[in-house]
Design a protein around this nucleic acid. Structure first.
Length: 733
DNA sequence: TGAGACGCTGTTTTT
DNA sequence: CAGCGTCTCA
């Protein structure tokens, strides 16, 4: 549930007992935790106890007499914040005194419900998720009639990506197009038009997307000085975790909250920056002292997590990075087994192998929640999920499909949304389209009436419906009328909606409605935990439950200990005794898109993040063959990130395809043109030469940059900077 | 105007 | 494979 930033009443100020023990921290950690009167930047390598430092600092501040209420902890996930706050509470022996914490988005949400009216937003605005935004873009696109006329207008996905990139990087559309989407230059004016309409649509209908939450918070704090002062007064101590992954807007928000009192500490590690797609730049963390003059910089370099054998490998991984500012980690946990490298025939064999190893570990009484399997993209674990199910190993998947992403859940939520915010035309549109015999055109007509009428219900009731769907519309009106009753519990609303929706549900999902039906049960469970519709709706977008969250998991009570399957992004900040990283194959990791050096480097950092999650044992596995989408089998071989490491750091184990591994462990340049006859000679690749890329097609070299990369213009995809060692280029002429 | 069938294309990560 | 745009029929 929502951690309220403005709880109605404060906890008592009774003196906290001195449970804070300085001896629990090393010198650098202690300095960071207790430094007062200056901004603090903590550069903390993986496993060096940054969480511990943050927790102790919270406890220390409270002991020094700072009210818990005045402390703000910003983290990457809500869960991380909750855990840290709980730990701090235990430390000072007073779990009642709760620090305020959560993600930037959650904080922005609550503050904007209070202050958004300065920007023309009522407090009942609806938060849009990604697919909601895409839906609106689509509505606008079709109303502007840009879709047709033979030319290929970019998809809603691309349009949204472009806009989000521009917002998060604080760069104007023109520049983003020129830099990243040069092939869309011809659509620039149409795109600008769509974005303008999109902005207007959101404002008029009380909608905010993820980016708006950040942008609008910054705006209101900048434009209304009194608001900034109030917030800064309220939070006179600010702590930020994972600072390397904040974007310029978030950095501004931190600056605005902390300006004046300067009681701010940020913690991060440039080597673990993996969110550039969200506008983060790892260099930002180094700018912090410039924004806050007089910053004390503390480095944490002693690793308490992993064995020396694992650390030797992770140091080697990050050593290959082209640009890095910090540190060499050292461990005081001697020895340990070398990370195991295992190649398998294909993905199925890899899944069997890993599943067997997990079963074996469980047999040796390794707790299930000390085992994790990490991968680059959500779908990489499908085969393993099957294997584990067959062997009756319980697991929990993180970073997979969200419950709220499926159509039937979005359907139900649409009714709840219009109940909270009758101006939400996106949800009205969805509701109307669910009626039989109503399509986009009719829905738009009804929507126009809703727009013109004070009361949406009246507009719908009065609409001159066609014979074939009059009855359906009447039923809808009947439902809406019932939902008007004041003071309904969210679960009561849900039940009324279901009574109406079930018929529609069975009609449109006739094939697989039993499966989907279970999701609806799960949703009901979830809703029954809420007393307030608004926070339920907020949470479905700000903290969406995962599909595999089998009913009670996570929220109510403690879930049973389970093996974790997770994307690397969702594994950030976590650690386990035994960690498997799978699918370390060329074309899979790095994922097949990154051809630009910056993206390439980010993929490397991701590998680093994954490997540094392990405490005792690390298993790196790859299939020698991966299936591509068009079901042509393609020899992938091991990931270039593995190939560049010294074999001495790894245990290539008994069997398990060492021969293949060995042969590939020679210089990585050879990796280049796998299957296409090696990387072309750099000397042949000069300006004006036409090349073919397996994904982008034919393009023309615009210039050679750096030692091993070229800039190529592809008519369909724009300008790309390609890394010659890995991009599979073929010279055409 | 809606609904269903068919063929083409593009592909990650999260709040 | 899904999410499109296009086409046909009701």
């Amino acid at each position: 549930m929502q951690p309220s930033l403005f709880p109605s009443q404060n906890q008592d100020r009774a003196g906290a007992r001195g449970a804070f023990r300085a001896g629990d921290l090393n010198r650098a950690q202690l300095e960071a935790a207790t430094c007062m009167g200056a901004p603090v930047l903590v550069i903390a390598g993986a496993g060096t106890g940054k969480t511990r430092t943050l927790v102790y600092r919270m406890a220390y501040l409270i002991e020094q007499g700072v009210a818990a209420d005045n402390i703000l902890l910003l983290t990457f996930t809500r869960k991380a914040a909750q855990e840290m706050i709980e730990r701090a509470g235990r430390l000072i022996n007073d779990p009642g005194r709760k620090v305020t914490g959560g993600t930037f988005h959650a904080m922005a949400n609550i503050l904007l419900r209070r202050y958004g009216h300065h920007l023309g937003y009522a407090p009942n605005f609806t938060i849009l998720d990604r697919s909601d935004s895409e839906g609106i873009i689509n509505l606008i696109k079709s109303s502007l009639e840009l879709g047709g006329s033979g030319k290929r207008f970019p998809s809603k996905r691309v349009v949204c990506n472009l806009l989000s990139r521009s917002v998060n990087k604080c760069t104007d559309i023109e520049t983003v197009i020129a830099d990243q989407y040069s092939h869309l230059e011809e659509y620039r004016s149409e795109l600008e038009r769509i974005f303008a309409d999109f902005r207007k649509f959101k404002l008029e209908h009380g909608l905010m997307d993820y980016d708006d939450l950040l942008v609008n918070l910054r705006r209101v704090m900048t434009e209304v000085p009194r608001v900034r002062e109030e917030i800064a007064e309220r939070f006179n101590h600010v702590l930020v975790d994972e600072y390397q992954d904040t974007n310029p807007i978030q950095a501004d928000i931190v600056r605005l909250v902390a300006a004046g009192h300067n009681n701010v500490m940020v913690v991060g590690d440039d080597s673990q920056s993996i969110y550039s797609f969200r506008g983060a730049d790892f260099r930002n963390i180094m700018d912090f002292p410039k924004v806050f003059p007089g910053t004390r910089v503390v480095r944490l370099e002693e690793n308490y997590r992993s064995t020396q054998a694992i650390l030797a490998l992770t140091n080697a991984i990050i050593d290959k990075a082209e640009e890095k500012y910090s540190k060499k980690l050292f461990s005081n946990i001697d020895g340990g087994a070398k990370p195991r490298l295992q190649g398998t025939l294909d993905e199925a064999a890899q899944a069997r192998r890993v599943a067997e190893q997990i079963v074996e570990l469980r047999g040796r009484d390794v707790p299930a929640d000390e085992i994790a399997v990490l991968f680059r993209s959500g779908f990489h674990s499908y085969k393993l999920e099957l294997e584990l199910t067959n062997r009756q190993v319980q697991f929990e998947k993180r970073g997979g499909l969200k419950l709220t992403e499926s159509a039937h859940i979005k359907d139900v939520l649409a009714y709840l949304r219009v109940t909270g915010n009758p101006g939400d035309h996106l949800s009205w549109n969805r509701i109307l389209l669910l009626l039989d015999k109503v399509g986009p055109k009719t829905a738009r007509n009804v929507l126009d009436r809703i727009r013109a009428n004070e009361d949406p219900l009246e507009a719908i009731r009065a609409f001159p419906a066609g014979k074939s769907w009059r009855a359906g519309l009447d039923k809808l009106v009947e439902l809406l009328l019932k939902l008007r009753a004041p003071g309904l519990e969210p679960v009561a609303i849900f039940d009324m909606v279901m009574e109406y929706y079930r018929e529609i549900f069975e009609r449109i999902y006739h094939d697989d409605y039993p499966t989907r039906s279970r999701d609806l049960d799960q949703l009901r469970q979830l809703i029954s935990g809420y007393g307030d519709l608004q926070s339920l709706l907020d949470d479905t977008t700000l903290d969406p439950p995962e599909t595999t969250d089998e009913s009670l998991g996570g929220r109510l009570g403690s879930p049973p200990a389970q093996v974790i399957l997770s994307t690397i992004h969702s594994a950030k900040g976590l650690e386990w005794d035994h960690v498997f990283v799978i699918n370390l194959a060329a074309g899979r990791f790095p994922s097949c898109q990154p051809f630009m050096t910056a993206e390439w480097e980010e993929e490397r950092r991701m590998f680093y993040v994954a490997a540094t999650r392990a405490r005792k044992m690390l298993y790196l596995s790859y299939p020698r063959e991966v299936m591509s989408f068009d079901r042509q089998s393609r020899a992938g071989g091991m990931s270039p990130f593995l190939a560049e490491l010294s074999p001495a750091l790894l245990d290539s184990g008994p069997g398990g395809g060492t021969t293949m591994a060995r042969s590939k462990l020679s210089p990585p340049a050879r990796q280049g043109g796998a299957g296409r006859g090696g990387a072309p000679d750099i000397n042949l690749l000069t300006e004006g030469v036409t090349v073919r890329h397996p994904f982008f097609g034919e393009g023309r070299i615009e210039k050679t940059s750096g030692k091993r990369s070229v800039e190529v213009f592809f008519p369909r995809h724009g300008r790309k900077t390609l890394h010659l060692d890995y991009a599979k280029l073929e010279i055409i002429g």
